[in-house]
């Protein structure tokens, strides 16, 4: 096993997609619990920057989703209290809490996804399927920082020319708008050089352009892909055959613990902890090869 980010982006993409889908659609507290534990640890080990702030936001989402369900869903038999003739049931609260945890896990998962699926990886996937769209995305990514820099340059120049005359809000907005306008002109007029540069290198002479990427599909990618497909297939089969379903209404039941279900839990845990395991393994190996810090 190699560090997770070294895998082919398509494998990574599929991995995250399936992991999230299972968490979202299994409706199984054990699965959600596994995803929650795994994604918290993974997020901490992969995306430490700004995680605290993210957690604050996630907590708000959690509270909102957990509250929303019992307010709108009046199924369930164990009535806790009655508000405006509407019963608030224990089952709805529990379901809400599970949904909240599920959403939290998925949000964390997408946070990790966002860190690992850098723009060039996502571009590789888009580009393979849609070469022209891939090109548009790549061009946009190239232009965004260029525009950002130009905006700062224009602002600086205009400040010395007295654009922001008085420091009040209206002048400020007016100034910002004329900077936006200047940027538009700049981009459109100079973009023609970019367009010419594209034509000069044969853009559009062939209807089907290739979309090149430095990423390769190695043997280890094939192994990982097979592994992911087989294990997720197994779990999805379980979902389809209602082997994993946990009913909350009318009365909450315990999640299933059949052999099949337990196998699913183990496999899912294996999948969900994969990035963390890869990271720990990599640490140990690095330490072996290069010595202590």
């Amino acid at each position: 096993m190699k560090p997770i980010e070294k895998y082919n982006p398509a494998v990574l993409f599929l991995y995250f997609l399936l992991l999230a889908s299972i968490a979202m659609f299994a409706t199984n507290p054990v699965m959600v619990g596994i995803a929650f534990a795994a994604m918290n640890l993974t997020a901490v080990s992969y995306t430490r920057d700004g995680l605290g702030r993210a957690y604050l936001f996630f907590f708000v989402i959690f509270i909102l989703t957990s509250l929303a369900n019992p307010i709108f869903s009046h199924n369930g038999v164990t009535v806790l209290l009655v508000v405006n003739d509407n019963p608030i049931t224990l089952e709805a609260v529990l379901y809400g809490v599970m949904t909240g945890i599920m959403i939290l896990s998925v949000l964390l998962l997408f946070r990790v996804f966002g860190t690992l699926m850098t723009s060039d990886r996502l571009l590789y996937i888009f580009g393979r399927a849609f070469p022209k769209l891939g090109l548009l995305l790549s061009m946009t990514l190239r232009f965004v920082p260029l525009f950002g820099r130009q905006r700062r340059k224009i602002e600086n120049t205009q400040r010395t020319l007295g654009l922001y005359k008085n420091e009040n809000a209206i002048d400020n907005i007016k100034g910002k708008l004329s900077v936006l306008s200047a940027m538009t002109t700049w981009g459109l007029e100079n973009g023609i050089v970019t367009a010419d540069s594209m034509s000069a290198r044969g853009y559009g002479i062939k209807r089907t352009r290739t979309s090149f990427s430095m990423f390769r599909f190695e043997r280890s990618d094939a192994v990982m892909l097979t592994l992911i497909i087989i294990s997720c297939g197994f779990i999805f089969l379980g979902i389809a055959m209602d082997r994993l379903k946990t009913d909350f209404y009318p009365r909450m039941q315990l999640p299933p613990f059949s052999l099949y279900a337990i196998m699913c839990y183990v496999i899912y845990a294996g999948l969900a902890f994969l990035p963390l395991a890869a990271k720990i393994r990599d640490r140990i190996i690095q330490r072996k090869v290069f010595g202590q810090e």
């Binding site: 190239r142 100079n190 973009g191 050089v193 062939k206 352009r209 290739t210």
Partner: peptide, 26 residues
């Protein structure tokens, strides 16, 4: 102008751009 004739976001991608247009294989 060096800045404006660059089309893509990564150095290797820029190098490949012309060949992509010709439909050359990976």
């Amino acid at each position: 102008r060096p800045d404006m004739q660059i089309v893509t976001d990564k150095v290797w991608h820029e190098l490949a751009f012309g060949l992509e247009n010709l439909g050359v294989g990976q």
